[in-house]
């Protein structure tokens, strides 16, 4: 039976890569998760009944934003290095990506420390609840990204990453771009739209 079925063969049969489809699905599901936290933040702008309010405590996180967004560029450079087979260059740019992401995380930590000393915690008001949950969810995604990046870093140092791992690396890069894109949304919603409330 099977033989007869296989007899009528067609010429070309190409299917998408499982990694790519999987990563697209992961990004979709993560977007849906973030969307709800963003909606909660937007919905509760100006609804806190007691302070501290955003206009009293929030400052534009320029340095953090520059660090994170530039890491999206360096990861692309690293990818291209790997594709060309330049292992050392890949290693350097991959490390720079890690350092930039880590810098962003430290920046967020410093910012939170300042906010907590100004009296804003997750239970102080609606702003605190929505702010820490949204920014914290993003930061947790940065942490996951950094774990993935450092994993590749270690594997590369032990010589286990080759140019044919290009697609694996590209998926991590996609995830990292996604984390950056979410930051642009968070930045707009938290630090621009709600800044005056």
């Amino acid at each position: 039976m099977n033989a007869e079925l296989t007899a009528t063969a067609e010429t070309e049969w190409k299917l998408p890569s499982p990694r790519v489809v999987g990563m697209i699905c992961v990004i979709m599901t993560e977007s849906a998760l973030f969307a709800i936290f963003v909606v909660a933040y937007l919905f509760y702008i100006g609804k806190s009944v007691s302070g501290p309010y955003p206009h009293e405590v929030l400052e534009l996180p320029i340095l953090g934003t520059v660090l994170l967004l530039s890491s999206s560029g360096t990861i692309v450079v690293a990818e291209q290095m790997l594709e060309k087979g330049r292992q050392a260059g890949f290693n350097l740019w991959w490390f720079i990506t890690f350092a930039l992401g880590f810098g962003f995380l430290i920046y967020t930590g410093v910012e939170w420390n300042k906010l907590i000393h100004l009296g804003l915690t997750i239970n102080s008001n609606l702003f605190g609840s929505t702010y820490y949950s949204l920014v914290g969810l993003h930061a947790s995604h940065v942490v996951v990204g950094l774990i993935l990046i450092s994993l590749i870093l270690v594997m590369n140092l032990t010589g286990r990453i080759r140019h044919f791992h290009h697609e694996h690396i590209m998926m991590i890069s996609w995830y990292w771009h996604f984390v950056d894109a979410v930051w642009i949304v968070v930045f707009t919603v938290v630090y621009v739209i709600s800044a005056k409330s």
């Binding site: 699905c25 979709m28 599901t29 849906a32 998760l33 969307a35 709800i36």
Partner: peptide, 8 residues
């Protein structure tokens, strides 16, 4: 994929 995350 799209509508379980809101519940979570």
């Amino acid at each position: 994929i799209l509508f379980l995350p809101p519940l979570s």
